[in-house]
Design a protein around this nucleic acid. Sequence first.
DNA 1: AGCTACTTTATAATCATTCTAAACTACTTG
DNA 2: CAAGTAGTTTAGAATGATTATAAAGTAGCT
Lengths: 138, 138
Amino acid sequence: MPNSEAIYIEKLRNSGLRPTKQRIRICEVLFNREKTFHFSINELMKIIQTKNNQKISLATVYNTIHTLKKKGHLKEINVGNDMSYFDTNTHSHHHFYDNQTKELVDINSDEVQIKKNPVPPNGKKIMDIEVTFKISKE
Amino acid sequence: MPNSEAIYIEKLRNSGLRPTKQRIRICEVLFNREKTFHFSINELMKIIQTKNNQKISLATVYNTIHTLKKKGHLKEINVGNDMSYFDTNTHSHHHFYDNQTKELVDINSDEVQIKKNPVPPNGKKIMDIEVTFKISKE
DNA sequence: AGCTACTTTATAATCATTCTAAACTACTTG
DNA sequence: CAAGTAGTTTAGAATGATTATAAAGTAGCT
């Protein structure tokens, strides 16, 4: 196994979270992967239920994902306004979003370059730039 | 009056929509303005109710806004995932979004320039580019 | 071993949005 | 103009994602 429980326990501890069974299990689903992972809570629930380990309640999944997001281990992506998507890739990067298939694809940050940034309103600072390329069948 | 009912009636007719009292009233709220207008359905409802004309039902407002969007008279903006925002500016342009105040501000399209576009996945075409600059207090 | 604060859980509650089916109305045709 | 029909509006119910609640469970400390 490339990533053992120990790593997630550390990760959780570093964020001031108790490494409970449930959190460790969720971390495994999220982070024990080759590629970065995009998901909705609903999709994540299904995966967790399939990996027939013990059931984790919906509320716990919501809590854990939001906590991980707050601690900077996940990024929330705003796309359709029906539900939230999350991304294990927390580095600055952008997305293709296919409105038909509702699929989200990462774009390497070096594939997009913004030449000119707007000046933010008075007293405000730009915290993040999110570019979404809406795509559809040719 | 800079924009009379007649204009909205034409606008609706051109989109194949019957110019009903309700639709005309909604068009007045949306388009009879100096600046472009950003709104959530909730905010729009409040404005309509305040302009004490006869009440328009929530379902009608949803229907009308979605129809206007489908016909290209409004743009939907994806920002927080809690609710939809719409914009009467349908030209290509971008936004500041203040996560604290939940305010949305237009950015003139000439204030942002994207130097390098990513190559879309096979068989797909880029239909739209949406850039959101998340801002907060300095 | 026992305490305390943090977690999990099932369930109920909330909130935006969509659906439904009945009443209504714009427009066409005779 | 009368009447039909297809498009609209409406109130209220239904849905679905998310959040709140409050009781039971657990981690980590002493």
